[in-house]
């Protein structure tokens, strides 16, 4: 057995955490000092104190939570459908070379189009309601899931497949026990990229046409000249994005447990 360095890991984690908070703390401190000394235009960059007051307000009246929940539900809808479609199609394209040839040009042309460029089209086709937003999130989640799944399926180790063939295993067993587990790390990369794109897409969609959601909150704050609210919106987007990614990473470590025993830890 390889010696485990379980003794060292907790120390490392605490140190890593402390190091990781140094920069954010420095920036906030600089911001506070700068605000006190009038380095910034306060109608653009509010003081931390003002943000704090605004924050208590939007928490108490529940409006921040309402906006976040609405955005979040939209993301979940679009993401679940988009990721599912991407992974399923990706598995098929990865498995069957004829299908791969059929799709290669279409994928090549459509993939570079930023999802946000489709907003006007979706609004025209689906209206300014939920459908156009979910369609946008769908597209955002779909591409990374599709492309990474295809890569993962194609990368399945032919030597392992040979072992299964020698043992007389059928196609279904080979898919279930070898090709899919081989592709999982890559599929997960797609899922993680997909959720972060989905989250960016919802904000963009809400900024253009919406009456609720975090993206709307930011636009509303600008129109009302409430920089503190604007900052809260922006920071909320960042923090939620981080939490989603941490959750996905947690899932990844649970599902692709064998990667953890390969010595090197997954990147954060």
């Amino acid at each position: 057995m390889k010696s485990s360095n379980s003794k060292r890991i907790p120390d490392n984690r605490i140190t890593a955490f402390i190091i990781s908070i140094i920069l954010p703390v420095l920036i906030i401190a600089l911001w506070a000092v700068g605000s006190d000394n009038n380095w910034f235009n306060q109608s653009i960059i509010p003081t931390p104190h003002k943000i704090n007051l605004q924050f208590s307000k939007v928490i108490e009246d529940g409006s921040l939570l309402k906006h976040i929940t609405v955005s979040f539900v939209r993301v979940i809808y679009g993401y679940v459908i988009g990721a599912l479609a991407g992974v399923v199609l990706g598995i098929l394209v990865g498995l069957f070379s004829k299908l791969d040839q059929a799709f290669i040009l279409l994928i090549g042309v459509l993939r570079p189009i930023p999802p946000i460029a489709c907003i006007p089209l979706f609004i025209l086709a689906l209206g300014i309601g939920e459908d156009s937003k979910i369609a946008l999130i769908f597209i955002g989640a779909f591409w990374p899931c599709l492309l990474n799944t295809i890569t993962g399926i194609k990368q399945a180790d032919s030597k392992l497949i040979e072992v299964a063939k020698v043992l007389g295993k059928g196609k279904f067993i080979i898919l279930k026990d070898i090709i899919l587990p081989s592709a999982l790390p890559s599929i997960f990369t797609g899922l993680r990229l997909g959720i972060s794109t989905a989250w960016s897409c919802v904000v963009a969609a809400e900024m253009i046409a919406s009456s609720v959601g975090v993206g709307y909150l930011i636009m509303y704050a600008r129109e009302m000249s409430k920089p503190a609210l604007l900052f809260i919106g922006i920071i909320a987007i960042g923090i939620i994005g981080l939490l989603i990614d941490l959750f996905m990473q947690f899932l990844q470590d649970k599902i692709i447990f064998w990667e953890l025993s390969r010595g090197g830890k997954n990147g954060t």
Binding site: L160, P181, I256
Partner: peptide, 9 residues
């Protein structure tokens, strides 16, 4: 085979 060719999962 030369390589053990085990399934890592």
């Amino acid at each position: 085979f030369q390589e053990a060719r085990l399934f890592p999962w």
